Amino acid sequence: MFGLNVERLDLKDKNEKQELEVFLSKFGLELDKDVDYSLVVRDGGEIKATCSKAKNVLKCFAVAETLRGEGITNTLITDLINKLFEEGIYHSFIFTKPENISIFSSLGFNLVHQVKDVALLENGIQDINVYLNKLIKKYNISSSTKAALVMNCNPFTLGHQYLIQKAAEENEDVIVFIVEEDRSLFPFETRLELVRKGTEHLKNVTVIPGGEYIISSATFPSYFLREEGTRLNAYTELDAGIFAKYFCSKLNIKRRYVGTEPYCKVTNAYNETLKEVLSKYGVELHMIERKKQGDYQISASTVRNLIKEDKFEELKEILPQTTLGFLHTEKGKEIVAKIKVSNTPH
């Protein structure tokens, strides 16, 4: 490390950011869009090593061949974890290629799960088993046989409600995990509250936060898996494997419910992979045909499009009263305003 400097790179500086992107491209890597903090090691002014983070996920590692074996990775990770500590974050993840597991294991990271193209490791004050034990205690989850659903609900529709009701009718207990990553126009706390209010009449249903281990496709890294098909397969296999291996085992989940998806190829591919992975762990996947209402296949994206087009009367056909009522609150009106000016899908 003699003569080498570790420094923070200014991601707001277009030239510095481009310099980092060029360095990563030499390794067939990309800079993920959600990166919020990057470190680089320079030698003679040139970048020779780097790593970054997005919240508590460490990513975008690259070290020039001439510096390998010099403890650079250890230094960079130590500095990143110190930065997390400054932010009050004491638990972190690394997504990496399986061949790199030993490198990060030697630095104190523990393997959560691996599939063909990607592995997830974690480090810090908790692990996935500790997390699930706390979840069981906090929500008083019994040992009964259960069904589960994982939903985003952006926002909660009659379609979501129908799917949950179907699971509730067919099972003793049902857990609904709401994706916690805040990448939606409807914030996580709002989505969680709307689902809870909209399922109050279902006494065998428990609605809880998805937590960090139910991986959002939005946070899954793309920097070392550039081909879209490979990335989708890796994400679905990893997410499904973690859910089956840990959640289903620990919470005695024997069935998972999903709705059919007539519009989205990504969701269809996810459901097919989910079915295959869950079956290896003795868990059934139940695909329920999406609920229709008049001319509409009920979906959250349909709701957002109707809001954008000012077709609020038509919303009454596809939203429960709890969601309709929320849209008329001050917070709801703010979200409606954001949807109307949004040019990107959410």
Rank of each mutant, 00 (worst) to 15 (best):
E7P: 10
R8P: 10
K12F: 15
K12I: 11
E19T: 13
L24E: 00
L24P: 00
S25G: 13
E30V: 11
D32W: 09
K33P: 11
V35W: 03
L39F: 14
G44D: 11
I47M: 11
T50P: 00
V57S: 15
C60G: 04
A62W: 00
V63A: 02
E65Y: 11
L67V: 01
L67F: 08
E70Q: 11
N74I: 09
T78P: 13
D79I: 15
L80Q: 15
I81T: 15
N82Y: 14
K83T: 15
E87L: 15
S92W: 14
S92I: 13
F93T: 07
T96W: 08
S102C: 07
F104T: 04
F104N: 09
G108Y: 14
G108D: 13
L120Q: 13
E122A: 08
G124K: 08
V130F: 07
Y131S: 13
N133L: 04
K137L: 04
K137R: 12
K138H: 02
K138R: 10
N140G: 07
I141W: 00
S142A: 08
S144N: 06
A148C: 01
M151T: 03
M151S: 04
F156P: 02
T157A: 00
T157R: 02
G159E: 03
Q161F: 04
L163E: 01
E169C: 08
V174A: 00
I178P: 04
I178E: 02
I178A: 06
V179T: 05
E181R: 13
P187H: 09
E189N: 11
E189Q: 13
R191H: 09
R191S: 03
G198D: 05
T199E: 03
T199D: 00
H201T: 10
G210V: 08
G210S: 07
G211M: 10
Y213W: 05
I215R: 09
F224L: 06
R226V: 11
G229M: 15
A234S: 15
E237Q: 14
G241W: 15
F243P: 06
K245C: 12
Y246K: 05
F247P: 04
C248H: 09
C248L: 07
S249Q: 14
I253M: 00
K254V: 10
R255G: 05
R255C: 03
R256I: 08
V258R: 05
V258S: 03
P262H: 03
P262Q: 02
Y263K: 06
C264N: 14
C264V: 04
V266P: 06
N268C: 09
A269D: 12
L278T: 08
S279Q: 14
S279E: 12
Y281G: 06
V283P: 02
L285Q: 06
E289M: 02
R290C: 01
K292C: 04
Q293M: 02
I298E: 02
I298K: 03
S299I: 03
V303A: 03
R304H: 03
L306S: 00
L319D: 04
Q321P: 10
G325V: 08
H328T: 11
K331F: 07
G332Y: 01
E334C: 05
S342A: 12
S342D: 12
N343M: 05
